[in-house]
Computed example of a mutant assay.
Amino acid sequence: MKKILLLTTILACVSFASPYTKCAGCHGANGEKAALGKSKIIKDMSKADIVASLKGYKDGTYGGPMKGLMKGQVMTLSDADINAIAEQIGK
């Protein structure tokens, strides 16, 4: 239990450093993983596609089976955060 609390605390602190840190747990450090075996490989997406999908998750107009989970992940992201994620990962 202590390890879980420590890991959660570390991840929460690190997530303030980079908006993508929140994503890396499921998508991989470089966006190379299909999150939970269901998502697209986000490193292969264009910057515009990443912005459109994150904004769509946020407003509920985008997504398949992970729509509910992703909406919760992106609700606190600002437009600047979304653009920073796209710049870091997108082509």
Rank of each mutant, 00 (worst) to 15 (best):
M1T: 12
M1D: 09
M1Q: 10
K2D: 12
K2N: 08
K3G: 10
K3I: 12
I4N: 12
I4Y: 10
L5W: 12
L6W: 09
L6F: 14
L7M: 13
L7S: 11
T8G: 13
T9F: 13
I10K: 06
L11E: 07
C13H: 10
C13S: 15
C13G: 15
V14K: 14
V14E: 13
A17H: 11
S18R: 09
S18L: 07
S18T: 12
S18V: 02
P19E: 00
P19S: 11
Y20P: 03
K22D: 13
K22S: 15
C23H: 03
C23F: 01
C23E: 09
C23K: 02
A24T: 11
G25D: 03
C26R: 01
C26L: 06
H27N: 13
G28A: 12
N30H: 14
N30C: 05
G31Q: 04
G31D: 09
G31H: 05
E32Q: 11
K33G: 03
A34R: 14
A35D: 05
A35T: 08
L36T: 10
L36H: 12
L36D: 10
G37T: 09
G37R: 09
K38Q: 15
K38I: 14
S39G: 05
K40N: 10
I41K: 09
I41R: 07
I42C: 05
K43L: 04
K43E: 08
K43M: 08
K43C: 07
D44F: 08
M45I: 07
M45W: 13
M45Y: 10
K47F: 05
A48I: 03
D49I: 07
D49H: 03
I50Q: 00
V51D: 05
A52T: 09
A52W: 01
A52Q: 08
S53C: 05
S53P: 00
G56Q: 03
G56W: 01
Y57F: 15
K58S: 09
K58Y: 06
D59A: 02
Y62Q: 11
Y62S: 02
G63Y: 01
G63M: 04
G63S: 04
P65C: 03
M66F: 02
M66Y: 07
M66D: 10
G68P: 00
L69H: 06
K71G: 13
K71Y: 06
G72W: 02
G72M: 06
Q73W: 04
Q73S: 04
Q73P: 00
Q73D: 02
V74P: 00
M75V: 13
M75Y: 04
M75P: 00
T76Y: 04
T76E: 10
L77G: 01
S78W: 07
S78R: 06
S78I: 02
D79S: 11
A80V: 12
D81T: 01
I82L: 05
N83V: 08
N83Q: 15
I85N: 00
A86S: 04
A86K: 00
A86G: 03
E87I: 10
Q88V: 06
Q88N: 09
I89P: 00
I89C: 01
I89V: 12
G90D: 02
K91P: 00
K91A: 05
